[in-house]
Simulated scan of single mutants.
Amino acid sequence: MIVRIMGEGQWKLADSHFAELNALDDELLAETEAGDEPGFRRTLGALLDAVRRLGEPLPDDALEPSELILPSPDASLDEVRAMLSDGGLIPG
């Protein structure tokens, strides 16, 4: 799976990491819906850190289609709320 972090680049992650990312996404969705700014910041950071830790960065000149697009680390609660679907940022 190719994941893009807006403003940073793309990472290639094995599908086996989907469950870990999805658990963080579920937390982020709950915190966003509750308006929990500190929790939102913490979980967004953890989600992006997990992508960076588990994934292999693609070269800057690579333009692969992203299967998942995540917000930048400095995205606001409202910006992320606008990106969310019923299931969060990560479908499934």
Rank of each mutant, 00 (worst) to 15 (best):
residue 7 G to V: 00
residue 14 A to Y: 11
residue 63 L to I: 02
residue 25 D to H: 03
residue 8 E to K: 10
residue 92 G to Q: 09
residue 77 L to S: 04
residue 62 A to F: 13
residue 1 M to V: 09
residue 14 A to R: 10
residue 35 G to D: 10
residue 5 I to D: 07
residue 2 I to L: 11
residue 88 G to C: 06
residue 82 A to C: 02
residue 26 D to G: 14
residue 72 S to D: 10
residue 88 G to L: 02
residue 13 L to H: 01
residue 47 L to I: 08
residue 20 E to M: 08
residue 86 D to S: 06
residue 73 P to E: 15
residue 55 G to F: 11
residue 80 V to W: 00
residue 91 P to C: 05
residue 71 P to S: 06
residue 83 M to G: 07
residue 54 L to C: 07
residue 79 E to G: 09
residue 8 E to W: 08
residue 21 L to E: 01
residue 80 V to G: 06
residue 10 Q to M: 15
residue 31 E to Y: 14
residue 29 L to Q: 10
residue 83 M to V: 06
residue 53 R to T: 09
residue 23 A to D: 12
residue 66 S to D: 15
residue 72 S to K: 11
residue 35 G to P: 15
residue 7 G to C: 01
residue 46 A to G: 12
residue 67 E to H: 13
residue 35 G to K: 12
residue 75 A to G: 09
residue 81 R to W: 04
residue 33 E to K: 14
residue 90 I to C: 11
residue 19 A to W: 03
residue 60 D to R: 14
residue 35 G to F: 15
residue 5 I to Q: 06
residue 6 M to I: 07
residue 39 G to M: 12
residue 24 L to I: 10
residue 78 D to G: 11
residue 92 G to W: 04
residue 60 D to V: 14
residue 88 G to A: 05
residue 69 I to W: 05
residue 79 E to H: 04
residue 66 S to P: 13
residue 84 L to Q: 07
residue 80 V to I: 06
residue 21 L to P: 08
residue 88 G to P: 12
residue 68 L to C: 15
residue 75 A to K: 02
residue 34 A to N: 13
residue 56 E to I: 13
residue 35 G to I: 14
residue 27 E to P: 02
residue 64 E to Y: 12
residue 77 L to A: 03
residue 77 L to D: 03
residue 25 D to N: 14
residue 91 P to N: 09
residue 68 L to N: 06
residue 70 L to H: 01
residue 3 V to F: 09
residue 84 L to N: 07
residue 16 S to A: 15
residue 57 P to F: 14
residue 54 L to E: 00
residue 39 G to C: 12
residue 66 S to I: 01
residue 21 L to Y: 04
residue 20 E to T: 15
residue 14 A to V: 04
residue 81 R to P: 00
residue 79 E to L: 04
residue 20 E to G: 15
residue 90 I to V: 15
residue 85 S to N: 05
residue 78 D to P: 05
residue 19 A to D: 14
residue 76 S to H: 02
residue 88 G to S: 06
residue 56 E to A: 11
residue 86 D to Y: 13
residue 22 N to M: 06
residue 12 K to Q: 14
residue 71 P to L: 04
residue 24 L to G: 07
residue 10 Q to P: 07
residue 13 L to M: 04
residue 68 L to R: 08
residue 41 R to W: 13
residue 30 A to I: 08
residue 44 L to K: 08
residue 61 D to E: 13
residue 80 V to L: 03
residue 74 D to L: 01
residue 81 R to M: 01
residue 27 E to V: 01
residue 70 L to W: 03
residue 16 S to R: 13
residue 60 D to E: 13
residue 66 S to L: 02
residue 82 A to W: 01
residue 51 V to M: 08
residue 79 E to I: 03
residue 79 E to V: 05
residue 24 L to S: 08
residue 53 R to S: 05
residue 45 G to L: 02
residue 84 L to E: 08
residue 33 E to F: 10
residue 91 P to L: 10
residue 15 D to L: 11
residue 11 W to H: 14
residue 56 E to D: 07
residue 82 A to K: 05
residue 12 K to V: 12
residue 67 E to W: 10
residue 66 S to Q: 08
residue 91 P to F: 10
residue 47 L to H: 01
residue 25 D to Y: 06
residue 15 D to K: 00
residue 22 N to E: 13
residue 2 I to K: 00
residue 51 V to E: 04
residue 82 A to D: 12
residue 57 P to Y: 13
residue 37 E to F: 15
